[in-house]
Design a binder for these strands. Sequence first.
DNA 1: TCAATAGTGTCTGTTAGACATTATGGA
DNA 2: TCCATAATGTCTAACAGACACTATTGA
Lengths: 234, 234
Amino acid sequence: MPERPPPAANRPPTRRISLSVDVVLLTPHGRRLTTLLQRSADPRARERWELAWDAPHGEETIDDAAARVARTALGAAPALVEQVGAFGDRRRHPGGADVSIAYLALVPAGAPAPVGGDTAWFPVEELPALAPRQREMLDGALAAVRARLDQAPIAFRLLPPTFTLTQLQEVYELLLGRRLHKASFRRALQAAWLVEPTDEWRSEGRGRPAQLFRYAPRRRRGGRRGVRFDGLGG
Amino acid sequence: MPERPPPAANRPPTRRISLSVDVVLLTPHGRRLTTLLQRSADPRARERWELAWDAPHGEETIDDAAARVARTALGAAPALVEQVGAFGDRRRHPGGADVSIAYLALVPAGAPAPVGGDTAWFPVEELPALAPRQREMLDGALAAVRARLDQAPIAFRLLPPTFTLTQLQEVYELLLGRRLHKASFRRALQAAWLVEPTDEWRSEGRGRPAQLFRYAPRRRRGGRRGVRFDGLGG
DNA sequence: TCAATAGTGTCTGTTAGACATTATGGA
DNA sequence: TCCATAATGTCTAACAGACACTATTGA
């Protein structure tokens, strides 16, 4: 039986550390998922790109700080801001923070882009070099988006208030990284009572116009079926 | 078009904050999920119970600190330690930490219990009063366990190396909070190639002895099917 | 007219859940 | 013997994916 030390003493944690709140802003651009990066504000490293970040101000909570950082970088409030997790290994952060809290923020497609050469949307498969800590946070945010896709209305936050079912399916395909079957997708969507049709139609270019829908979840009917043993690799 | 402030200045986050790492240790006890609580080390509040927690020491990362806190509280290393998230609202933490990082730690059923009246396992439905921050972290850890059940081998970390299929199903029922169909459960398990039989059998009390299995995931065959629109409430 | 996209009906193989049955031990 | 639990076979309804077809627009 190993020796067991007494429980940690209940003193305030005296050692204070530096903290950053970093936000991964995401929006679809065409058939690609893109993320917002800013040029470093450090005058010695103006050519480097960074995730938007800052330390919490004054009495702000970390959620407050994330909302502020997102709003400042984007010029408007995103549709959803959610925590991803804390990153406190020894990888480098642009501000030298000991611990960084990552947030993801979703921006509807077609929202006005921030102007100026200091801020730009990059496809997530073609990113410039980032500080290792921020690279890790970005990968974590992408994994979180995919994991939460069927738990929270992620896809609807990446679309304007009304959208076509093809747009919705494209967002799912974007996030899942695979093609979906059109008829099955619509059947499952109808069975879930998640969207309702508007009386508007949109004609884009050639084919038949598509009906516009809005996100309007009704109460679920029937419980979940089965247990998923997928994803239990090693 | 709203005025857009310049991006956050790239100065080190000078304001330093106090940080705690809090661990939610979980193990099944019979048909209940239980969590480890310790009596407060504060001599003025010895009757209060707390999650195990501490500030990171010296050069420790937050993952290191979580592993240490878990090992210290339990007297042995848990089977899995994973981050839940950061909690930095204004709710009270026992150590007055500005920000707390929650971890969950899984302990196999039947592992030796910590001795002494300062540490005890409580069923998660019958907890004593906790500091509001820690109560929030515990609820977050339980939600994370349920959410990750089909993404990571959570259930197997709550069981000894060999186990019966009934035990495994009981862990799933414990975490999901609902009964599962025995035949369906076993069919899905077999199709997923997650466990392999040993040549041992266990006789518990009355009925026919059950074969023991071990967790031995084989490579997946075939991709995921469909999209889940469950869980998209509102 | 053709090309392109939206939207739907039908068929089929797979799977979840219900039910029943057999197997094997202890009391 | 009876009872309790393990383990499995069969049936059915639900569902995912394939395919085909109709509908409606612009070029």
